[in-house]
Simulated assay, not measured.
Amino acid sequence: MTRAAIILLVLALAAPPLAAAAAAATDAVDDDGGGHRPPIHLCGGVVQGRFARNSSYEANLRHVAATLPAMVANGSSPSNRSSCVGILAGGRPDQISASAFCCNSSAPAYSDCGACVAMAFRYARWLCGYSRRAMVDLGACRVGYHDVERMEREMRAVSAVRRE
């Protein structure tokens, strides 16, 4: 069995616990605005690791959490609430790449794209703790962030496995 197949197998085995953990949280709105569903989320794995409290990574993450909602709100309008933005924050080795996306949703609770993104960041911090990688999907918006340097290492490792 190749390393790539082993990695895919491990990811497949990890998916059910992630789904069960997502079911524990509430308050995300269905895309049609008709009810609540748990936020969908993924947290970083072993390669991405964790960051320390009050570290420069956490400071960069706070900057992203404060900046990204305003950026995505400025990119959307009432007639077209779809917006996607990305940002890099900090310097290596604690540089963060983050993105946010708001879809054209009729959900009244998330008519404000910036507010949805801010809430998704709060969920990411709550659900993923001190993970250097997180993604949260609230239906009306999506937020993700990761450690740039560690992601590059992870991609090089995957590339090396594919060459074998």
Rank of each mutant, 00 (worst) to 15 (best):
I7M: 04
A15L: 13
A25N: 02
D31K: 04
P38L: 04
I7R: 14
D30K: 13
A23G: 08
A28Y: 09
G35Y: 00
P38Q: 04
D27R: 07
H36D: 10
P17Q: 09
A28G: 02
G34P: 09
G34V: 01
T26E: 02
R37C: 04
P16G: 07
D27S: 04
A15W: 07
D31Q: 04
A28K: 00
P17G: 01
T26Y: 01
A19G: 13
P17L: 08
P38A: 06
P17T: 07
L11A: 13
I6C: 13
A24N: 01
L9A: 14
D27T: 07
V29P: 01
L13C: 14
A22D: 15
A25S: 02
R37E: 10
A12F: 11
L8F: 09
D31M: 01
L9T: 11
A23L: 13
G34F: 03
G35F: 05
A21G: 11
L9W: 05
P38K: 04
L13H: 07
P16L: 06
V29R: 03
A22W: 03
A23R: 00
G33N: 04
V29I: 06
V10E: 14
A25M: 09
P38E: 11
D27K: 02
A22G: 15
G33C: 03
G34Q: 09
A24R: 13
D27A: 10
D31T: 06
D31Y: 09
I6R: 15
D31P: 02
A28I: 01
D27G: 05
I6N: 09
T26G: 05
I6Q: 13
L9S: 11
R37I: 06
D31R: 11
P17M: 03
A21S: 09
R37T: 11
L8Q: 12
A20K: 12
L8H: 10
A28E: 07
P38F: 02
A21Y: 06
A24Y: 02
P38C: 00
V29A: 08
D27F: 08
P17Y: 00
A28M: 04
